[in-house]
Design a protein around this nucleic acid. Sequence first.
DNA 1: GTGAAAGCGCTAACAC
DNA 2: GTGTTAGCGCTTTCAC
Lengths: 344, 344
Amino acid sequence: MVTMKQVAEKSGFSVATVSAVINNLPVVSEKAKVQILKAIEELGYRPNVVARSMKTSKTSSIGIIVRDITNPFYPKVISSLEEVAWSYGYEVFLCNTENNVERERKYIDNLIGKRVDGIIITTAQLERDEYYEKLRKLKIPYVFLNRKPEQLLENEFFVGTDNCLAVEKVIAHLANMGYKKISFLCGQLHLSTFRERYDGFLKGMKNQNLEIEQKWICIGDYSQEKGYEYAQRMLKDKNIPEVIVCSSDLLAFGVYTAFKENGIRIPEDVALTGLDNNPFGHLIDLSSVDMQHKALGEISAKILMELLNQQPVNQQTREILLEPQLVLRKSCGVELHVGRDKHE
Amino acid sequence: MVTMKQVAEKSGFSVATVSAVINNLPVVSEKAKVQILKAIEELGYRPNVVARSMKTSKTSSIGIIVRDITNPFYPKVISSLEEVAWSYGYEVFLCNTENNVERERKYIDNLIGKRVDGIIITTAQLERDEYYEKLRKLKIPYVFLNRKPEQLLENEFFVGTDNCLAVEKVIAHLANMGYKKISFLCGQLHLSTFRERYDGFLKGMKNQNLEIEQKWICIGDYSQEKGYEYAQRMLKDKNIPEVIVCSSDLLAFGVYTAFKENGIRIPEDVALTGLDNNPFGHLIDLSSVDMQHKALGEISAKILMELLNQQPVNQQTREILLEPQLVLRKSCGVELHVGRDKHE
DNA sequence: GTGAAAGCGCTAACAC
DNA sequence: GTGTTAGCGCTTTCAC
């Protein structure tokens, strides 16, 4: 690897001058600049960012911690986030925790060791973990994405979509359409997102003066398999509601599959709604809720960038809650041509 | 940030001894070890990996370059790859090029600057780019994933799935079932994967003694939108084949949508196949081809890890081609219950 | 077993 | 404008 020293020798200037050229300091003469750039070109010199980081204590790297990148939620979030980071000159470490808390902790330790400038945390499994305290103490900025901590301490930031409102909107829409017997399939309640969606269900039902039947509430994994299982059980028990509200599109996909296999028609026999606006939900005309994934990635990254660049971050906006949008398709009764599939 | 020096002072030993403890060198006395570990604990010391990298010229970081992470191809590849990297103690930089060649080049430069230990390259847009030459010269190991370079130079590695064979298998299956009028929708030919799939179509048709009709071959983007457009055009031109073979599931999704909107039944009116085994293809009973994404990520990462650890890499296996597997569902005629949806 | 010290490649303060 | 030089925090060689 070519070093600055070699560039200095070849060009006949000192390392300080070379450094100045590299960093575009306006003090060097045109002549020096030209010669040094020529030497850089000829030698194929490339600054060693590691060495630079040593001096500056900045690495231009950030980390993003996710539960499981194969979950359709993440790709959009990550790509928009990465786009913003890129435009600010940052690289991003992808940290997939595989839903493993220990691994998440280890990842945070590793990221600290690598001296990342900041971290975006999307996992929802840890409540006020000691590991976040470490980050606070070390003054490494971090932003919670989608994961609403119980209480936001000073210098903590949160960007999310209103999970509670998402389900409320679904319930309100269904109630409007005359549905009364509503079933709710929910993800694990220890994940804040699903806890909130559950609350949204309760609140929505109450607001609409609808009765909540315990036998129609299922709580567990938010996977296709679970949705399939729930639907099978409903069929077996002959316990079919008018509409099944799923707290994730994956659950709805599972339900759809089970019903299709058994000749149950959607929405004629039973209506169905999902949540997350999976890019392939339109294939089965699934009504869903768009959780603004792109905006989530963008906004969280921008906040982090502001923090890293010491820009005064508006403390009023430490907590940003985006509004989810209903995406209505045929699976819950009518084709409203609102937010219809654009084949994206 | 706590430094080694502080740990040394607090424990009463020298930095060299502290370093020995950190690195688990077997030379230090038990007593020193205990005291130093205690000091580390109390101070909350964490080794500075950046400084370590300076000395060792190793960063324990690798980069993965992808075209577009929202493409369903990537999440599985990336997660299995990341899993392997993690198990070897490496962190991975995610580099999304947004299909932009310039950006890919810049990313490679950045990764070199950050002194990553190796790179996995999944983009297919550059033929023998000068930027790969840079990597070669700098002796930074890299592995091509899914992107078959025209010619593999020494110390270059490639892991992929046999794209040509994938389409051949589809054609053979369809021919077996009696289909003759076969249409082929292909992605951009400057991408090696689609070029190979195109070749597979030609070869497959020839092998089956089937006639290739130019009017049934469409080449362009491999997106849902394009599939939708192609199908609309077929309908308008009343130019409907017996079966539409798509070089990507996305294309097939678009075709499906257009046909559904127009009341065309699949497979009764026209059969349909995709390629990539999108995790949601089972929703519409789409036959497809599994391209072994998980294995791709795993194997490529393992090869890179071997390269990084100076293990002798079997030069015979410099080029690994996995065998694609048909996933047959109802969209091309029969329900064979082979590779049937497992709701994953 | 332990410590002193050199040096990885860079930045930045300071001298000229 | 340009050069000299002191470190950033660590690893490692070589004395002791």
